[in-house]
Design a protein around this nucleic acid. Structure first.
Lengths: 371, 371
DNA sequence: CTGAAAGCGCTAACAC
DNA sequence: GTGTTAGCGCTTTCAG
């Protein structure tokens, strides 16, 4: 009878908020030491079957649940990875998040998920919070803003994480420079865009509208670059009026497309910066009575589910989203293990992209459209 | 010079994996005690401006990041909530998850997210893991399986969580009974389904196909129940051939619909158990040359984005998904605070649903369809 | 195979 | 205002 507190009943929760059972309680009830209890839990050390049985029984009857904080404090990894996206609802991020979550789970880890809603400050704050929790890795997903002080802050966080043996993973965004310890998992934005525009050109298009993609975002910048390169390579002159950057949103795609149609801007194909924008554009086209692909070709980027839901089904670029998520945690977790390796802390994995040809592209009509 | 270890350089991370700075280091460098450092961090106690400045400078130069585990162990809440869904990609869960994440963030907490992929065992394991991390609340989302031992296990976990002052939140799934300490946030599955079928009947439909929804899932069960009640109320006899439960998947909707069409089963409207199933059915209908809504009416459930992407746009039932997520954490977090209240640990909040009428329903054609 | 005891890093009384 | 100190619950040598 040497139990410390004796507030009310045991653990059969009546009103909640009691003191939880600890290893000490379990040890006492089982008549062993706390070391033995620990050994039973972690099954990392031989324990007599009978003893084990008694301990397990004690744990059960006390409703004992190990305290991960205490365990982490005692030197065991917290078995946590963090992922920061701008928006969970967006399939682009959701698929990557799924990859991260699955890989984490497969590695017996739990996943902290945060949404920045596009706010870089929030992003920095989340990294900090995850570091406080000693996440084994922090995965940052999606295009980043091109701001110097922001990048400097990010670099600082990356170094702090690294100094603690953790890792910042840049997933689908550019490196912070060779002197900043991060790992990266990228996909070929520029190349995919190049291929897509080239596909359009091959079909005979010359006047291609590039629609959407925030100018400040690296992802958008690279896609536009690929588009331009394709144009250039084919000797097609760039027309500023045909470059209409903007939000990565359905609303933007719809609105801007409707305006352009109304203004009578001349083009025979639309390269939407992503599938969401394409969905908006498709609606505007439909409402304006412009048929896809007969009167107008339309392509997107990402190959998220809407691409197949649209009619006609959208030609787009497929990105190995879930695989990127998986690799992000894999790379981060295996990268730091090997001590004898050199210190290529800034290794970047690049995954391929490829066009998925569906039904939204056709050769341009002869002569003027709507003619 | 009384620093303990002196392994290589300071914290300017060169190769990663060094010992991290602790309060002791900060205190030493700033020439104060650890208590003061703590006070500076938590800003919950007066500290001289000059002192504060010195401490903050020390933290900065050491790249100090507080250890959340130690803090949690010392008695402060871990500021974490957990959410368990079957699949992050599914918009239904994604929207709820977004609500949970936002409410958590607003309350200065981080969010652990896990996906069960429909496996109840995994679900139980995740609850345990979150409990180990001392999550302030664990939100369980979506329909649950009707299995006795599973429910018993769930109840045990709920009690353990409750005993520790935490809370299990049942979001969109039935209570485990009044003796199990959980809180619930529900929406009216039965009522929404009732309204939907009633809407169809009002339009003149009599032979309504009910498609999809795993028979074992509470959500599906309730929707079917609402459908049946509407039929009954209007004195329409139930035809077993018109009840085709199945997965909550697009593939099921497509396949089953195609089969039924091929078999020539007679009906004038389809009540898909959710929008995803409706999307699959829509495709089958389209491929079979059956026009919606002229030849066939179609309705779904959930009002996720696809509903507006389909052509014609889908009439469906709107559920306040994000709000449910928010309420889930709010209810869990405020519930246990008040000590003087009675112990209505099993309080359930019920949110309303309502039909969103769009373009996929019309009166049935006179006489036989396709006639 | 099992026990005793020293921390892990932080917070919160309690003194000064 | 600031310092001292006693834990929080667990793991892990080091001894039996």
């Amino acid at each position: 009878m040497s139990r410390q507190s004796s507030t009310a009943s045991g653990a059969s929760g009546t009103a909640g908020g009691q003191r939880r059972a600890t290893v000490v309680d379990v040890a006492a009830l089982a008549g062993v030491s706390t070391a033995t209890v620990s050994r039973v839990m972690n099954r990392n050390y031989p324990v007599a079957a009978a003893t084990r049985e008694r301990v397990e029984e004690a744990m059960r009857s006390l409703g004992y649940v190990v305290n991960a904080h205490a365990r982490a404090l005692a030197g065991v990894s917290g078995r946590t990875v963090g992922i920061i996206v701008s928006e969970l609802i967006d399939p682009f991020y959701a698929y990557i998040a799924r990859g991260v979550e699955r890989e984490a789970t497969d590695g017996d880890r739990l996943c902290l998920v945060c949404c920045t809603q596009g706010d870089p400050q929030r992003e920095l704050a989340f990294i900090e919070l995850m570091h406080e929790r000693r996440a084994d890795a922090v995965v940052l997903v999606g295009g980043s803003v091109e701001d110097r002080t922001y990048k400097a802050e990010l670099a600082r966080r990356a170094r702090e994480l690294d100094a603690g043996g953790s890792k910042l993973v840049l997933c689908g965004r550019p490196s912070l420079g060779d002197d900043v310890p991060t790992v990266g998992v990228e996909y070929d934005n520029e190349g995919g865009a190049f291929a897509l525009t080239d596909h359009l050109i091959t079909q005979g298009h010359r006047r291609i509208l590039y629609l959407g993609g925030p100018p400040g975002l690296s992802t958008a910048r690279d896609r536009l670059a690929g588009h331009r390169r394709a144009l250039e390579l084919r000797g097609i002159e760039r027309d500023p009026a045909l470059e209409q950057p903007g939000a990565f949103s359905r609303a933007f795609g719809y609105r801007r497309m409707a305006e352009l149609l109304r203004e009578g801007t001349d083009f025979t194909a639309v390269f939407a910066a992503n599938d969401i924008v394409a969905a908006g554009a498709a609606q505007a086209l439909e409402e304006a009575g412009v048929r896809v692909p007969q009167d107008m070709s339309l392509v997107g980027y990402d190959d998220i589910p809407v691409a197949q839901e649209l009619r006609p089904r959208l030609t787009t670029v497929r990105i190995p989203l879930e695989e990127m998520g998986r690799q992000a945690v894999r790379v981060a977790l295996t990268g730091g293990d090997e001590d004898d390796w050199r210190a290529p802390t800034t290794g970047t994995l690049r995954l391929g992209t490829h066009i998925v040809v569906r039904d939204s592209v056709a050769p341009p009509r002869v002569g003027r459209r709507q003619g």
